[in-house]
Deep mutational scan, measured.
Amino acid sequence: RADKQHVLDMLFSAFEKHQYYNLKDLVDITKQPVVYLKEILKEIGVQNVKGIHKNTWELKPEYR
């Protein structure tokens, strides 16, 4: 399990490339446990629960 700041850096870097990611792809990118990753994502992102981007994560507007 990596340092939180290191995980945040990896996530922000990923979100610079694409606006939406599913959790599986973010786990592959960060190599972090799902529960730990979700904890961090809830602080900086929102999970889309409907629409064409259903079940994906994106950054909260203040982090874009």
Rank of each mutant, 00 (worst) to 15 (best):
K60N: 12
D28Y: 08
I29Y: 11
F15K: 01
E58W: 05
P61W: 05
M10N: 04
E62F: 04
K60E: 02
E58T: 13
T30F: 02
Q32A: 09
T56N: 07
K38N: 15
H53L: 09
L8F: 05
H53A: 09
P33F: 00
V35C: 14
Y36R: 10
D3I: 13
K24F: 09
K60D: 03
L11Q: 01
M10D: 05
R64E: 08
K4N: 07
Q19K: 13
A2E: 15
S13V: 14
F15L: 04
P61K: 13
N22P: 07
L37R: 01
G45S: 10
H53C: 07
V49I: 13
A2G: 15
K50L: 10
K50A: 13
D3R: 09
H6Q: 15
L41C: 02
P33M: 00
S13W: 07
K38D: 06
K60A: 08
L26P: 01
V7I: 15
V49H: 07
D28A: 12
L11A: 00
D25N: 07
K31L: 05
L26E: 00
M10R: 06
G45E: 01
V7Q: 02
E62P: 06
N48Y: 07
L37N: 00
N48K: 15
R1P: 05
N48L: 06
N22G: 11
I52P: 13
K31G: 15
K50S: 13
V7C: 08
F15I: 04
K54F: 05
L23E: 15
K42I: 08
D28F: 09
L59V: 05
E39M: 06
D25S: 08
H6K: 15
V27H: 09
T30V: 05
K42Q: 14
N22Y: 13
I44L: 03
D9A: 08
L11V: 11
K38Q: 11
E43I: 03
Y63I: 08
V34A: 14
D28R: 13
Y63Q: 06
G45V: 02
L8C: 10
L37Q: 01
D3N: 15
Q5I: 06
E43V: 06
Q32D: 01
L26G: 01
V27R: 11
K38V: 14
K42E: 12
H6S: 15
L23C: 04
K54P: 10
G51K: 03
Y36Q: 13
A14N: 15
Y20L: 06
L37C: 04
T30K: 00
G51H: 05
Q19H: 13
Y63D: 02
D3W: 05
I29T: 07
P61H: 08
H53Q: 10
I52R: 13
E58H: 08
A14G: 01
Y63T: 06
E43R: 04
V7S: 02
V34K: 13
N22F: 11
E16Y: 05
K50I: 09
K42T: 10
E16L: 06
P61T: 12
V7L: 12
H18A: 13
D9H: 02
V35P: 13
K42W: 06
N22D: 06
W57Q: 02
E43A: 04
G51E: 02
W57D: 02
K24G: 09
S13D: 15
E62R: 08
D9R: 13
F12E: 07
K50P: 04
F15C: 02
N22K: 10
M10Y: 02
R1I: 07
V34N: 07
E43G: 05
A14W: 10
L11D: 02
L41N: 00
Q19V: 05
Y63C: 09
N48R: 12
V35Q: 12
V49Y: 13
K4T: 06
V46A: 09
V34C: 11
F15M: 03
G51N: 07
